[in-house]
Amino acid sequence: MSLLELRKLNKHFGGLHVTNSVDLTLQAGEIHCLIGPNGAGKSTLFRLILGEHHPGSGDILFAGENITALKSFARIHRGLSVKFQVPGVFKGLSVRQNLEIALQSRHRGEELEAEIDRLLTFLGLESEQAQVAGNLSHGQKQWLEIGMAVSLKPRLLLLDEPTAGMSPEETYMTGEMVQRLNADGMTVLAIEHDMAFVRQVAHRVTVLHLGQVFAQGSIDEIVADERVAAIYLGQAHA
C-alpha cells in the first residue's frame, strides 16, 4: 500500500524550476532515502509535502487522501511529522518543556509526565532534562528534535539530514534509532548526505537532480549506476 504519493509535482521560483514534475511513491513501512547534490530540490520537496510551500501544479496524496490544499498543522494531524535540517528546538525552554509541548495534546497529568520520562530515556537525555535546549550539543539538539517529531506517533516521519554534524558513532546510533522506529511501523523519508547512514537504513533510495527524479532503486543499484556516480557519488568518491 502506498502511504505517500507525489504526482507531477511542480514548484518554481520565478524562472527556476526547483522541482520539476516529480513523481514519487512511498510504500507504508519502508525507509526511503532521498539523496542528490546541493540544490537538487530535496528540501523544497519536504516543504511541499509539509505545506510550507504550495506547488504550482501537481498533487500530494497521503494515505489515499489528497492533502495538497491542507494547511501544515492539518497535515500533521493526518500523521505527518518532521525534523528540520537546522535543529528546530525551542532554544529558550528546558529540554523537558520542549517534550511537554510536543506531547501535551495527546497526554494529560501524570500520564503526560510518565510519557515525557519515557521519551527522555529513549533519547538518552535524562540528565539534561532541566537544561535549556539552546545549551545542548548539536547532536543532542538533533535527537531532541527527532524525539519531538516522533512523539506525535506519526505514520510518516520526514527527516531532513538527521545526522548532519554528528560523529560516526552518533550517526550509527541515529541509524539504529530510525530502524527501531521503523520496526514499530513508522514509515520514514530521509534526506541524507551521509552514505554510511543511507547504507545502514535505506530500503530504497531516490536520487534527485535538478528538481527531477534521476534514479531510484536499492543502495547497491544506485551505487552501481554510472550516471549517478557522474552527478553525485563520483564527486564524493573523487
Binding site: F73, S81, F84, F90, K91, G92, L93, A102, S105
Partner: peptide, 16 residues
C-alpha cells in the same frame, strides 16, 4: 512561548 521560540516548529507539532 513555543510560538515565540520557533513558530515553524510549533506549527509542525500540529498547532494552528
Amino acid at each position: 512561548v513555543a510560538i515565540r521560540e520557533n513558530p515553524e516548529r510549533a506549527e509542525m507539532l500540529g498547532y494552528d
